[in-house]
Protein backbone atom coordinates (compact mmCIF):
# COMPACT_ATOMS: atom_id res chain seq x y z
CA UNK A 1 0.00 0.00 0.00
CA UNK A 2 1.37 3.40 -0.87
CA UNK A 3 1.77 6.02 1.80
CA UNK A 4 -0.74 8.25 0.08
CA UNK A 5 -3.61 5.81 0.26
CA UNK A 6 -2.79 4.83 3.81
CA UNK A 7 -2.76 8.46 4.81
CA UNK A 8 -6.09 8.99 3.08
CA UNK A 9 -7.51 6.01 4.89
CA UNK A 10 -6.34 7.35 8.21
CA UNK A 11 -8.03 10.60 7.44
CA UNK A 12 -11.30 9.04 6.36
CA UNK A 13 -11.73 7.65 9.81
CA UNK A 14 -11.87 11.21 11.10
CA UNK A 15 -15.24 11.28 9.39
CA UNK A 16 -16.43 8.76 11.95
CA UNK A 17 -15.29 11.04 14.75
CA UNK A 18 -17.08 13.90 13.05
CA UNK A 19 -20.26 11.86 12.80
CA UNK A 20 -20.06 10.88 16.46
CA UNK A 21 -19.48 14.51 17.42
CA UNK A 22 -22.37 15.69 15.29
CA UNK A 23 -24.64 13.05 16.78
CA UNK A 24 -23.54 14.10 20.26
CA UNK A 25 -24.21 17.77 19.61
CA UNK A 26 -27.57 16.90 18.09
CA UNK A 27 -28.61 14.90 21.14
CA UNK A 28 -27.37 17.69 23.41
CA UNK A 29 -29.20 20.38 21.48
CA UNK A 30 -32.39 18.36 21.39
CA UNK A 31 -32.26 17.63 25.11
CA UNK A 32 -31.59 21.27 25.93
CA UNK A 33 -34.74 22.18 24.05
CA UNK A 34 -36.95 20.03 26.24
CA UNK A 35 -39.01 21.97 28.77
CA UNK A 36 -39.82 20.03 31.87
CA UNK A 37 -41.03 21.28 35.19
CA UNK A 38 -39.45 19.46 38.11
CA UNK A 39 -41.70 16.71 39.27
CA UNK A 40 -41.43 14.66 42.40
CA UNK A 41 -42.60 11.51 40.67
CA UNK A 42 -39.84 11.76 38.09
CA UNK A 43 -36.78 13.35 39.63
CA UNK A 44 -34.50 12.19 36.80
CA UNK A 45 -36.63 13.71 34.06
CA UNK A 46 -36.35 13.17 30.33
CA UNK A 47 -33.18 15.23 30.00
CA UNK A 48 -30.65 13.41 32.15
CA UNK A 49 -30.07 10.35 29.99
CA UNK A 50 -29.79 12.35 26.75
CA UNK A 51 -27.17 14.51 28.45
CA UNK A 52 -25.20 11.43 29.46
CA UNK A 53 -25.50 9.94 25.96
CA UNK A 54 -24.46 13.22 24.37
CA UNK A 55 -21.49 13.38 26.70
CA UNK A 56 -20.48 9.83 25.83
CA UNK A 57 -20.73 10.54 22.11
CA UNK A 58 -18.77 13.77 22.25
CA UNK A 59 -16.03 12.30 24.43
CA UNK A 60 -15.80 9.30 22.08
CA UNK A 61 -15.64 11.65 19.11
CA UNK A 62 -12.77 13.64 20.59
CA UNK A 63 -10.85 10.58 21.67
CA UNK A 64 -11.38 8.82 18.38
CA UNK A 65 -10.07 11.88 16.57
CA UNK A 66 -6.99 11.92 18.81
CA UNK A 67 -6.58 8.19 18.34
CA UNK A 68 -6.78 8.45 14.57
CA UNK A 69 -4.36 11.36 14.46
CA UNK A 70 -1.91 9.24 16.38
CA UNK A 71 -2.23 6.54 13.80
CA UNK A 72 -4.84 4.34 15.45
CA UNK A 73 -7.02 2.39 13.08
CA UNK A 74 -10.22 0.43 13.41
CA UNK A 75 -10.03 -3.21 12.56
CA UNK A 76 -11.86 -3.69 9.29
CA UNK A 77 -14.39 -6.48 9.61
CA UNK A 78 -13.58 -9.60 7.66
CA UNK A 79 -15.81 -12.55 6.91
CA UNK A 80 -16.28 -15.76 5.01
CA UNK A 81 -17.18 -14.01 1.83
CA UNK A 82 -15.16 -10.86 2.29
CA UNK A 83 -11.92 -10.28 0.43
CA UNK A 84 -10.17 -7.31 1.97
CA UNK A 85 -7.24 -7.43 -0.41
CA UNK A 86 -8.99 -5.11 -2.81
CA UNK A 87 -10.46 -1.69 -1.96
CA UNK A 88 -14.19 -1.09 -1.61
CA UNK A 89 -15.89 -1.79 -4.91
CA UNK A 90 -18.17 1.21 -5.37
CA UNK A 91 -19.19 -0.01 -8.80
CA UNK A 92 -21.11 -2.73 -7.02
CA UNK A 93 -22.30 -0.83 -3.96
CA UNK A 94 -23.68 2.27 -5.67
CA UNK A 95 -25.92 0.45 -8.18
CA UNK A 96 -27.04 -1.73 -5.30
CA UNK A 97 -28.01 1.34 -3.30
CA UNK A 98 -29.63 2.65 -6.48
CA UNK A 99 -31.86 -0.42 -6.74
CA UNK A 100 -32.75 0.08 -3.10
CA UNK A 101 -33.68 3.74 -3.61
CA UNK A 102 -35.68 2.85 -6.71
CA UNK A 103 -37.72 0.49 -4.60
CA UNK A 104 -38.37 3.19 -2.00
CA UNK A 105 -39.57 5.59 -4.69
CA UNK A 106 -41.65 3.04 -6.51
CA UNK A 107 -43.21 0.97 -3.77
CA UNK A 108 -46.19 3.19 -2.94
CA UNK A 109 -46.92 4.06 -6.54
CA UNK A 110 -46.37 0.83 -8.46
CA UNK A 111 -46.89 -1.60 -5.62
CA UNK A 112 -44.63 -4.28 -4.20
CA UNK A 113 -44.75 -6.71 -7.08
CA UNK A 114 -43.23 -4.23 -9.51
CA UNK A 115 -40.91 -2.44 -7.10
CA UNK A 116 -39.76 -5.72 -5.60
CA UNK A 117 -38.98 -7.04 -9.07
CA UNK A 118 -36.97 -3.92 -9.80
CA UNK A 119 -35.17 -4.27 -6.48
CA UNK A 120 -34.19 -7.90 -6.93
CA UNK A 121 -33.34 -7.67 -10.60
CA UNK A 122 -31.34 -4.51 -10.06
CA UNK A 123 -29.47 -5.99 -7.10
CA UNK A 124 -28.61 -9.17 -8.97
CA UNK A 125 -27.40 -7.10 -11.90
CA UNK A 126 -25.34 -4.85 -9.64
CA UNK A 127 -23.74 -7.92 -8.09
CA UNK A 128 -22.59 -9.10 -11.47
CA UNK A 129 -25.10 -11.60 -12.82
CA UNK A 130 -25.72 -11.27 -16.54
CA UNK A 131 -28.45 -13.84 -17.12
CA UNK A 132 -31.01 -11.14 -17.82
CA UNK A 133 -33.95 -13.35 -18.69
CA UNK A 134 -33.43 -15.92 -15.99
CA UNK A 135 -32.93 -13.17 -13.41
CA UNK A 136 -36.06 -11.43 -14.58
CA UNK A 137 -38.13 -14.58 -14.22
CA UNK A 138 -36.75 -15.20 -10.74
CA UNK A 139 -37.42 -11.58 -9.72
CA UNK A 140 -41.03 -11.66 -10.84
CA UNK A 141 -41.62 -15.06 -9.28
CA UNK A 142 -40.09 -13.96 -5.98
CA UNK A 143 -42.14 -10.76 -5.84
CA UNK A 144 -45.38 -12.53 -6.67
CA UNK A 145 -44.64 -15.32 -4.24
CA UNK A 146 -43.93 -12.94 -1.37
CA UNK A 147 -46.96 -10.80 -2.24
CA UNK A 148 -49.34 -13.72 -2.06
CA UNK A 149 -47.38 -15.39 0.73
CA UNK A 150 -47.73 -12.32 2.93
CA UNK A 151 -51.36 -11.89 2.01
CA UNK A 152 -52.47 -15.47 2.45
CA UNK A 153 -49.96 -16.69 5.01
CA UNK A 154 -49.40 -13.71 7.25
CA UNK A 155 -52.48 -11.63 6.51
CA UNK A 156 -50.40 -8.60 5.56
CA UNK A 157 -51.48 -6.95 2.35
CA UNK A 158 -48.55 -5.36 0.63
CA UNK A 159 -49.46 -2.52 -1.71
CA UNK A 160 -50.72 -3.68 -5.11
CA UNK A 161 -50.21 -0.25 -6.68
CA UNK A 162 -50.56 -0.14 -10.45
CA UNK A 163 -51.60 -3.76 -10.54
CA UNK A 164 -54.56 -3.12 -8.24
CA UNK A 165 -57.41 -5.29 -9.43
CA UNK A 166 -55.18 -7.64 -11.36
CA UNK A 167 -53.56 -9.26 -8.37
Amino acid sequence: MTSLTSRLKGRSELGVALLLGAAGVLVLWDAAGLVTPYSKSDPVGPKTVPYIVAGLLIVCAVMLAINVMRGGQGEVEGGEDVDLSHPADWKTVLPLAGAFVANILLIDWTGWVISGTVLFWGSVWALGSRHYVRDGLISVALSLLTFYGFYLGLGISLPAGLLEGIL
Partner: peptide, 18 residues
Protein backbone atom coordinates in the same frame (compact mmCIF):
# COMPACT_ATOMS: atom_id res chain seq x y z
CA UNK B 1 -23.49 -14.79 -4.73
CA UNK B 2 -25.64 -12.30 -6.67
CA UNK B 3 -28.76 -14.26 -5.73
CA UNK B 4 -27.65 -14.66 -2.14
CA UNK B 5 -27.00 -10.99 -1.45
CA UNK B 6 -29.84 -9.70 -3.61
CA UNK B 7 -32.05 -12.07 -1.63
CA UNK B 8 -30.84 -10.62 1.66
CA UNK B 9 -31.63 -7.08 0.49
CA UNK B 10 -34.98 -8.17 -0.91
CA UNK B 11 -36.12 -9.84 2.29
CA UNK B 12 -34.65 -7.07 4.45
CA UNK B 13 -36.74 -4.54 2.54
CA UNK B 14 -39.80 -6.72 2.69
CA UNK B 15 -39.41 -7.31 6.40
CA UNK B 16 -38.83 -3.69 7.31
CA UNK B 17 -41.65 -2.48 5.09
CA UNK B 18 -44.20 -4.99 6.31
Amino acid sequence: RPYLYAGILFFATLGAYS
